[in-house]
């Protein structure tokens, strides 16, 4: 069960809540393969996708997740919209509120913006990424991918590598995987490791060889050049040499270690192309598949108490 109206982050999720999402996603994952029709589950519900920041995979994933559960989906057009005419975020929130949506899926380039909207609307809000803050469904899908592949999701050693500073995926993963009882190490150049991150209960190292020692899961993050205002690293070739995941560095990890990446990948910058495609170790495409099931599970669990569903169950 998710005993909450909104899913804004993983920082305040309990272990039970995380496992309930993952367990249900497991079920959806299997049903998706068998082409089970689940469109009655969220029938007649309205889901609005509100993406203030460009996204392809997450938006499409939420869209298909909603479709598979039978929601009516509206992709709110933000280009040429009232936002570009100067409407404030909260005015937009109250406008949307008056249209009685049941679920809002929001991505915004500024940390905390999704929470701000969630405080003003009555329906459930799912954070699809806010600034450098959180991206909870990514962390949940990562946890499930790990469990699927390694058979457990606790007591593991997990390295998160690269651009931690600009990564909401890193933050959500740290909170989620810590709660589940794993050891986390963050690895990256000092400029991309934000100050005080060790107080979130992670180990910090600036050397990939040390960082990957005895690791079960290697999470590689995208270098978020669009969020950088200069001076975080010298050149892409130097970055790849010291921090890009390649065969040489991978030797230091456990022989059975898996490789993850939230996508989209910059091949030859943070990850070697061949490693990314190595189906024995890389689970990158699996992550996308699991992502769909996780989002279905989140949509389902957040709306369990919705009146439309109670009606459905009566019939």
């Amino acid at each position: 069960m998710l005993n909450r109206k909104d899913l804004l982050g993983t920082a305040d999720l309990s272990k039970e809540e995380i496992l309930s999402v993952i367990d249900l996603a497991e079920q959806y994952s299997n049903e998706n393969i068998k082409n089970v029709n689940n469109t009655r589950i969220l029938k007649n519900m309205t889901q609005i996708n509100l993406f203030f920041e460009n996204s392809t995979r997450t938006q499409v994933s939420f869209e298909i997740a909603g479709t598979k559960l039978g929601t009516n989906i509206v992709n709110f057009p933000l280009k040429n919209s009232s936002q570009s005419k100067g409407e404030t975020l909260l005015d937009l929130a109250s406008t949307l509120n008056s249209m009685f949506p049941d679920i809002l899926v929001i991505r915004h380039p500024k940390s905390g913006a999704v929470q701000l909207i969630s405080e003003k609307v009555k329906c459930s809000v799912i954070n699809a990424g806010d600034g450098n803050h959180e991206h909870p469904t990514q962390a949940l899908l990562d946890a499930q991918t790990i469990r699927k592949r390694l058979g457990r999701i606790s007591g593991l050693k997990i390295a998160i590598c690269g651009d931690i500073a600009h990564s909401r995926v890193a933050r959500s993963n740290i909170f989620c995987l810590k709660t589940l009882g794993n050891k986390i190490r963050v690895v990256g150049p000092k400029t991309l490791i934000p100050k005080g991150i060790e107080n979130l209960g992670v180990e910090v190292t600036h050397n990939m060889f040390d960082g990957l020692q005895d690791i079960d899961v290697v999470m590689v993050l995208r270098l978020q050049k669009e969020r950088m205002d200069g001076g975080f690293f010298s050149s892409e070739r130097e970055y790849f040499h010291y921090y890009g995941l390649d065969e040489r560095k991978m030797q230091y990890a456990n022989p059975n270690a898996i490789i993850m990446h939230p996508g989209p990948m910059n091949r030859g910058i943070e990850i070697d192309g061949d490693l990314a495609d190595d189906i024995n170790r890389s689970v990158i495409t699996k992550q996308v598949e699991v992502g769909l099931a996780i989002r279905m599970a989140v949509l389902d669990l957040l709306t369990r108490r919705h009146p439309l569903r109670e009606k459905c169950q009566e019939h």
């Binding site: 920082a11 940390s111 905390g112 806010d130 600034g131 450098n132 803050h133 959180e134 909401r168 933050r171 934000p194 100050k195 005080g196 991150i197 107080n199 979130l200």
Partner: peptide, 12 residues
Amino acid sequence: SGSFATQMGLPS
């Protein structure tokens, strides 16, 4: 800059 800004993802 520090743990709080890092956790909240705020530029610091």
